[in-house]
């Protein structure tokens, strides 16, 4: 029975991959955007660092790797779930989504995984290549960090998706989501270390940010990648990352039930 259920999601996953390969402009658009961000940020770090070294042994070179990898990771953190929810609430098609004999959020997840699979080829590879060519080949600080990087990256993607899904649930109550989408995008950019690593911030601010889930999206995997933290630090931070993933998952389960009930009342 479980196998049968999974088949449905696999089908959604597959159709999404096929669909993704038919929309071209969005794909090139994102590559262009990421390349602009990568290059301008790289020049900023170059001008700023010169030949200086920052407190925790960071040089201009490690910042360039950080910049390229941040753009590469941003592809993995692409989610469609919040827009999808907003559109389906706005058009009322959420009712049809819910009539289907599958979990709505399961479908959204399968769709996002499908898009992501297509993006690996369409976006991640080109960005990695262009970054390596135009800026610097992003080499991981030490090969032994690869497993830890992989673990924290998977957790990052989980946290990122859950945050997007929870955020998207606002669509059920808010009238216009455009401003909120922008606010979320900029907040994540600011607080997650995607552009500025939070170790540049004053200690009090960095401490606050370390307690919030945002840094566990970009900052932790990137820190592992460029080797800017000790092993002990990384272990304790991965543990915190896991805690946040679980907290968000619990919150997601709680809210998704409530939100769907609310739709049923409206539609009845």
């Amino acid at each position: 029975m479980f196998d049968g259920a999974l088949d449905k999601y696999l089908f959604v996953y597959k159709t999404r991959i096929i669909r993704s390969f038919t929309y071209k402009f969005e794909v090139y658009g994102n590559i262009l955007m990421q390349v602009i961000i990568m290059i301008t940020t790289a020049f900023f770090w170059k001008a700023l660092f010169g030949s200086e070294t920052f407190g925790n042994g960071i040089t201009a070179d490690s910042m360039l790797t950080y910049t390229v990898m941040s753009s590469v990771l941003s592809v993995l953190f692409t989610t469609g779930v919040e827009r999808r929810m907003q559109q389906s609430v706005e058009k009322g098609s959420i009712a049809i989504d819910m009539m289907r004999p599958v979990n709505v959020f399961g479908v959204f997840l399968a769709e996002d995984l499908g898009s992501l699979t297509a993006l690996l080829v369409q976006n991640l590879l080109p960005i990695l290549l262009l970054g390596s060519l135009l800026i610097q080949v992003p080499v991981i600080a030490s090969p032994s960090a690869i497993p830890l990087f992989a673990v924290s990256l998977v957790l990052s993607m989980g946290i990122n998706w859950l945050m997007a899904a929870i955020f998207g649930m606002w669509a059920f109550t808010a009238i216009s989501m455009d401003a909120l989408f922008q606010a979320k995008k900029h907040l994540i950019r600011l607080l997650s270390g995607s552009i500025i690593p939070i170790w540049f911030f004053p200690k009090w601010l960095a401490d606050i940010l370390n307690a919030l889930p945002f840094v566990y999206i970009y900052q932790l995997p990137l820190d592992i990648y460029i080797g800017s933290a000790t092993d002990e630090e990384i272990y304790s931070r991965i543990l915190l990352q896991l805690v946040w993933a679980l907290v968000l998952a619990a919150l997601f389960c709680l809210l998704s039930k409530r939100v769907l009930k609310k739709v049923l009342v409206q539609g009845g």
Partner: peptide, 19 residues
């Protein structure tokens, strides 16, 4: 919504300069 979201966008740049 815009009163909140638009200033946030520029916090990033200002934080870069400040910190």
């Amino acid at each position: 919504g815009w009163v909140i979201s638009n200033p946030i966008q520029f916090l990033l740049g200002f934080a870069t300069i400040k910190f």
